[in-house]
Structures are given as structure tokens and as C-alpha cells.
């Protein structure tokens, strides 16, 4: 059953349409990979889903409950977590404090350290002093502690070494295997497709492909064509 269902969604920026009549679904226990060239509307879509920017039309449902008019905090409490682009740690707080901030009822900080044991040694360090990889681990772990049903992740690999990206990808796969519905926006298409289940490709604010990740991974020519059009 789909945890997140997006129907006929439109989002504008400065009154210009960036996402138009978009339909996607994200299943529990699966990773939906969202690909597309720069400017396709991927980040705008994620910001519309989490409520950072308002949507112009359409519906967003989590477990059948419409949330498109709710504020970001309400969407979070409904089970939607958004790991934004740019590693948005709370810089003046320590690693442990960052985790405590997001701790929702029923969650335990130990879950975060179990997912990323690398953070245990860094628990008392200010988040601004962590490495890029550690910061990315921290924001994913922080999102996990909000007890989400759906996790949106935007470009988590930006600026990170390949070995760290692989580590993060395996952690995200683990989260999906534990039942989370994940929508992953990623620039490393091949790596994302290798851990994903369903692939969407966006171009100019619309979904131009909806299919199986492995199938698309085995057809680099098709992926290239979808990115560039024609």
C-alpha cells in the first residue's frame, strides 16, 4: 500500500509553474528514486511536499489523509520527514542536542546511533565542526527520530566523497527495508538506481518516466534520452 500519494500536483515559484499536474506514489518499504536534469523541478517538488513552499493545486496524501494545506510542522507530525539539500544541521548545537531536538514520542536516540555508529564518538561535538559526511548522517538520523512514515531526501551526496555516499546509500536502503517509504532525489543516478525500487524521471516539472529502477539502470541510453528529451 502507498504511504505517500501525490495527485495532479502543481507548484509555482514567483507565479511561474515549476511542477505541473504531477502524479507519484511512494510505497512502504521501498525507495522511489526521483531523477532529472538541473531545473527539472525535483527540489521544488520536495519543498512543496513538505510545506516549505505552498502548492498551487492537487493533493498530497499520507495514509489517505490529505496534508497539502497543512504547515510543515503538522506534516512532520503526520509522518513526513524531509532531509533538505545542504546538510541543515543546527550548527550551534552538539550532535546529541541535534538528535534530542527531533526526538518524537516513542523514539530513542539509540536508534540514531545504531544506524550511524560513527556519530557516537562525536556526540559532544558541535555540529558545525563535524565533517560533511557526519553532518549528512546527522540530518538523516535526526529525521529518523521524528518517527516518519515517509522520508524525503534531497541530494544527500552533494559534495561528499564516493565512499561516504555509498555508506549513506546503504543506510537509506536499511531504513526502507525496515518499512519506511523513501523518496530519494539524487544526482548520482546509477548509485541511486542500484538501491532503489521505482524510478521517476522529471523534465520541466512533469514526470516523463515511471518504471523499475533496475530496468532503467540497465538502459543508460534510455536514461540519457529521458534526461535530455527527444
Amino acid at each position: 500500500m502507498s504511504k505517500l500519494v501525490v495527485s495532479n500536483l502543481s507548484i509555482n515559484r514567483s507565479e511561474l509553474p515549476v511542477v505541473s499536474s504531477l502524479d507519484i506514489a511512494v510505497e512502504s518499504g521501498a525507495i522511489s528514486v526521483l531523477l532529472g536534469a538541473n531545473g527539472a523541478g525535483k527540489t521544488t517538488l520536495l519543498e512543496g511536499l513538505s510545506g516549505i513552499i505552498p502548492v498551487a493545486g492537487g493533493t498530497i496524501e499520507i495514509d489517505g489523509r490529505e496534508i497539502q494545506k497543512a504547515r510543515p510542522g503538522v506534516r512532520s507530525r503526520e509522518g513526513l520527514a524531509h532531509v533538505e539539500q545542504g546538510r541543515t544541521v543546527f550548527r550551534q548545537l552538539t550532535t546529541e542536542e541535534n538528535l534530542r531536538v527531533s526526538l518524537h514520542a516513542g523514539a530513542d536516540i539509540a536508534e540514531a546511533y545504531a544506524l550511524f555508529p560513527e556519530l557516537v564518538q562525536r556526540r559532544s561535538v558541535k555540529a558545525s565542526l563535524l565533517s560533511g559526511g557526519e553532518q549528512q548522517m546527522l540530518v538523516i538520523a535526526r529525521a529518523l527520530l521524528t518517527r516518519p512514515k515517509v522520508l524525503l531526501i534531497d541530494e544527500m551526496s552533494a559534495g561528499l566523497a564516493p565512499v561516504i555516499v555509498t555508506r549513506l546509500m546503504s543506510a537509506v536502503r536499511k531504513l526502507a527495508d525496515n518499512g519506511l517509504a523513501v523518496l530519494l532525489v539524487e544526482q548520482f543516478a546509477a548509485l541511486a538506481l542500484s538501491i532503489g525500487n521505482r524510478a521517476y524521471v522529471m523534465r520541466r516539472g512533469r514526470v516523463v518516466h515511471d518504471g523499475d529502477c533496475l530496468k532503467l539502470l540497465k538502459s543508460p541510453g534510455e536514461l540519457h534520452r529521458l534526461y535530455l528529451g527527444g
Partner: peptide, 24 residues
Amino acid sequence: TKVGLNLRALADRPMAAELLGIRV
């Protein structure tokens, strides 16, 4: 306090705080 911790997070990144469900 937890409220104080939430306020410090809010002061640092208001949107990130709201995305975590903090009642900004």
C-alpha cells in the same frame, strides 16, 4: 530544558526546526 533546546534550534534554522515538527 527541552523547550530551551528547541528555541536554540529554532534560532539557528527556523525552517529545519519546523520540518522536525517543532511548534515554531
